[in-house]
Computed example of a mutant assay.
Amino acid sequence: MSPRGPRAPLAPDEVEVVPATGRFADVARMVGPSVPGGQACWCLSHRLLTAQLKDGGTERREEVMRELCEGPVPPGLLAYVDGELAGWVGAAPRSSMSYVESSSRLVRAHDDDVWVVICLRVRPEFRRRGLTRLLIEAVVAEAARSGADAVEAYPVDPEGGKVDQTLAYVGLTSWFEDADFERVLQTEATSARLRRWLVRREL
């Protein structure tokens, strides 16, 4: 832990954010089950259609994520603080996410090549230290390197209320606005009973 204290803001040079390619074990720690054989979304519910995950249950999800971690397009990025696993952001080109691409609720306002952030998770001991912002900025940098036109996400605006941590994985609008994203439109999709916004940052 940083000598400045558990809640001290993290400086960019304290954090390493890398693609999840070849790092399945760490991805599993972030989005896999908390106990062996338990249920977990594996960060696939917003990535693949239900029909693509049928048969096999959680074992099938684990298999799919393992394949994604070995594929040409990483399923997201992992953050490390002093070598310790600290956070995860599920993000990839929209064209590689069949669920987002076909959803009638996660609408789009532009017909161009974008990356989409679908999940943000930070381990408890690293929360409230600015790591979420660094993860979002890392996605922006990765998308820019790939030649994408923009990065988009579908967070919620709690409007002064609180959102349960288990439902905050889609992100809050303030997190993205702090990273220079702009609201485009309010969608019909919901999380934690709150309407989700399409937000976008041009590259």
Rank of each mutant, 00 (worst) to 15 (best):
V27E: 07
A28F: 11
R29L: 14
R29E: 15
M30P: 06
V31F: 06
P33C: 10
P33T: 13
P33K: 09
S34K: 15
V35K: 15
P36V: 13
G37Y: 07
G37T: 10
G38F: 12
G38M: 07
Q39A: 14
A40R: 08
W42F: 12
W42S: 00
C43Y: 03
S45D: 12
S45G: 06
R47Y: 08
L48M: 07
L48I: 04
T50A: 12
T50W: 11
A51N: 14
A51Q: 14
L53Q: 12
D55Q: 14
G56P: 04
G56C: 15
G57W: 10
R60A: 11
R61G: 00
E62K: 11
E62D: 08
V64T: 09
M65A: 02
R66P: 14
R66H: 09
E67L: 13
E67D: 13
C69A: 10
G71C: 11
P72G: 08
P72I: 13
V73M: 02
P75L: 04
P75C: 03
L77R: 11
L77M: 09
L78V: 05
A79R: 01
Y80V: 02
Y80T: 04
Y80E: 02
V81W: 01
V81T: 07
D82K: 08
D82R: 13
D82W: 08
G83Q: 10
G83P: 05
L85V: 12
L85I: 14
A86H: 03
G87D: 06
A92F: 05
P93F: 01
P93N: 05
P93R: 03
P93K: 01
S95R: 13
M97C: 11
M97H: 04
S98F: 08
Y99H: 13
Y99M: 11
V100M: 04
S102D: 09
S102I: 06
S104D: 14
R105K: 15
R108F: 00
A109T: 13
D111C: 05
D111A: 10
D113R: 15
V114G: 05
V114L: 07
V117C: 01
I118F: 05
I118Y: 04
I118S: 04
C119M: 03
C119Y: 03
C119I: 00
L120H: 06
V122A: 01
R123E: 05
P124S: 11
F126V: 05
F126D: 02
F126Y: 12
R127N: 05
R128Q: 15
R128C: 15
R128A: 10
R128V: 14
R129W: 10
G130H: 09
L134Q: 13
L135T: 04
E137W: 10
A138N: 08
A138F: 10
V139H: 06
V140A: 02
V140Y: 03
A141G: 12
E142S: 09
E142P: 00
